Simulated scan of single mutants.
Amino acid sequence: MSQSTTATTVEFQVAEETAPAAAAGGEAQGTTEGTEASGGEHHGVFPPLDTKTYPSQLFWLVIFFAALYVLMSKVILPRLSAILTKRMATINGDLARANALKNETEAAVKAYEKALADARANANDIARTTREAVTKDVDAESHKLDAALAKKVSDAEAKIAASKAKALDAVEDIAANSAAEIVAALGGGKVTKAAVAKAIKG
């Protein structure tokens, strides 16, 4: 009796323990089935590749491309064109200014070289003119000195000739006087100076 009671009690406990597990298993199985049932819809075609959505996709594609075209042609491209035009104008202006400065520099160098050549030519002309003027002055002074020296020499020769003539006259007078005195001393009588001079010259 006790054994049967014990067996009944054990079966009852096993039944109690098995019932929640079975219920849980049933719920899990139901959930799995529900998930499989609901998840069956997610195993369809990828939306962008679904032919049913092509018309709407094409419509929005045209809208976006049209908006992009309008944005590019009306806003972005004009701004880019204006920026490029302004930059090109700046570059052309800088190039023109650089060419103008280059031409001015070349003109200044040519003017400097011409001025330098003219200065050298003028210096040569001035040197030649100065040399000719100095040579002319030297020649004139030389002629003046030559004339002065010739005059002095002539004056000196004239003075020498006069002195010589005067000395010769004095010598003749001395000789005449000496001769007269000698004749008188020799007893020849008194002789005049004129006669002695005539005798000396004759």
Results as ranks from 00 to 15, higher is better:
Glu113Gln: 11
Ala162Ile: 04
Arg128Gln: 12
Lys159Trp: 00
Val45Thr: 13
Pro55Ile: 11
Arg87Phe: 10
Ser81Lys: 15
Ala167Leu: 09
Arg128Trp: 04
Ala199Leu: 05
Val191Asn: 02
Ala133Ile: 04
Thr18Gln: 09
Leu77Asn: 15
Ala7Glu: 15
Thr9Glu: 07
Ala7Arg: 14
Thr130Ser: 11
Thr5His: 13
Ala67Gln: 02
Val183Gly: 03
Glu11Leu: 14
Tyr69Leu: 11
Asn122Lys: 13
Leu61Ala: 14
Gly93His: 04
Thr192His: 01
Ala133Thr: 07
Ala111Leu: 10
Val183Gln: 03
Ala111Thr: 04
Pro55Cys: 05
Ala108Asp: 06
Met1Ile: 04
Val75Gly: 02
Thr8Ser: 12
Asn177Leu: 01
Tyr54Asp: 10
Glu104Ala: 15
Arg128Gly: 00
Ala156Gly: 04
Leu168Thr: 11
Asp139Lys: 10
Glu113Leu: 12
Asn103Arg: 12
Ala165Trp: 03
Ala197Val: 05
Thr192Met: 02
Thr51Val: 05
Thr6Trp: 07
Glu27Tyr: 07
Ile126Tyr: 12
Asp125Gly: 03
Asp169Glu: 15
Lys152Tyr: 03
Met88Asn: 10
Thr53Gln: 07
Ala108Ser: 09
Ala21Leu: 15
Val134Asp: 13
Glu132His: 04
Leu71Ala: 12
Arg79Lys: 13
Ala107Gln: 08
Ala123His: 09
Glu104Val: 08
Lys193Val: 02
Tyr69Phe: 12
Gly202Cys: 01
Lys74Arg: 11
Ala194Val: 02
Ala165Asn: 11
Ala82Thr: 06
Thr105Val: 08
Leu116Trp: 06
Leu101Ile: 11
His43Arg: 15
Gln29His: 04
Ala96Pro: 01
Lys166Tyr: 06
Val109His: 02
Ser178Asn: 12
Leu168Gln: 12
